[in-house]
Computed example of a mutant assay.
Amino acid sequence: MTTHEDPHHAVPSAEPLTDETVRLRVDDVDLALATVRRDGHREPVVFLHGFGSTKEDYADAALHPAFTGRGLLAYDAPGCGQSDCSDTAKVSIPFLVATAEAMLDHAGIDRFHLVGHSMGGLTALLLAARNPDRVLSFVDIEGNVAPEDCFLSRQVVTHPATDDEAFFDDFIDRNRRTPAYSAALYAAGLRHKVRPGVVRPIFTSMVELSDHGDLMTTFLKLPCPLMFMYGEQNAHLSYLPALAAGGVELAPIPRSGHWPMYANPVAMWDRIAAFHTT
């Protein structure tokens, strides 16, 4: 019996990503950052993953025809995924911004499109604010812009624990039982993707910045085209009308919550690709 492969489901031809470990020293901390990258003749896209995620969230960009010819860069943040860090207690959001700048310098990337999710969205926001002439566009996937965004990170305050391991164990269990799209899938990978020592300093800095950093003003003042992407399960976010009034393109992703790259990646990639063509 002869079978015929549906051409619409064939694996697309693509320029592959190159794996590399980049060794950097940032604020007297030694880093070994696991990266995936490819070069291209079109301006590159730089991806910053969220807490509990990794660079692999964005590896599929290399397979999408819309990104043909574009340079791509993603890496595991210090203390996350396959990246190592000599002092996990130093890993705050400002430290992640400095790490991103060091990685861009190492990669020789001057101007770029920016995509960041959650923790990576907040990092990307501050990175763009510090480098406004370098960022061509910014897709913020539920990155923190207001205090209400700390539904994960504020647990460091609302659910105190005696040590890092105990807090992380309870955090994983709470997320596993959360009635949200992809929450159980997210929780299943946390132990494998995050070193417990980075959790408290990252979460503490996220809460501090969200509560006192005037992030909404910073976001709306960025000079590049802006998109705010969110799962339809989070359409209740109170600031969405203010973003729209400020000229931000809103991108609700159906059948999704905080992690559209897990719940509905097809819709997520289509919206990002369309945004980059404008």
Rank of each mutant, 00 (worst) to 15 (best):
A124R: 02
M216W: 12
V156D: 03
H276Q: 12
G108D: 12
P252K: 06
I202T: 08
I93M: 15
P94K: 10
A273D: 08
H8E: 14
L152T: 09
F219V: 08
E20A: 15
P201A: 08
P94R: 04
P241H: 06
A180D: 00
T99R: 00
V207I: 12
S256M: 10
I109P: 05
Y239T: 10
F275R: 06
P78F: 02
F138M: 03
D164C: 05
E148H: 14
D133S: 12
P160Y: 09
G246Y: 02
G108T: 10
V115T: 10
G121I: 01
D133Q: 09
V248W: 00
P223K: 04
G257T: 00
A124F: 07
A274N: 14
T204I: 10
P78Q: 13
L125E: 02
A14L: 03
A124T: 08
A235G: 07
M227Q: 13
Q155P: 13
A161E: 04
D27A: 10
W269P: 00
Y181R: 01
V145P: 01
H258V: 04
E15S: 08
H4C: 12
G50V: 07
R38M: 08
G120I: 00
I272W: 04
D105Q: 14
P254I: 15
G246P: 04
T3K: 15
D169A: 09
S137W: 00
V29N: 03
P16A: 15
D270C: 04
P225S: 10
T162G: 08
G81S: 05
A244R: 14
V199T: 12
D170P: 04
L190V: 14
G231P: 09
H9Q: 11
H276Y: 15
S92F: 12
Q155C: 09
H258M: 02
D133E: 15
D57E: 11
G247M: 08
D19R: 12
A267P: 02
L237D: 00
M103L: 14
L209M: 09
L72Y: 03
D164V: 08
L73T: 02
D211A: 13
F67Q: 00
V135E: 01
Y186R: 09
A98C: 11
G52C: 07
H117E: 15
V36E: 14
T21W: 14
A187H: 05
L125K: 03
R176G: 13
A184S: 14
L48P: 00
F151S: 12
D19N: 13
L17T: 13
R271G: 01
H106N: 07
F138V: 04
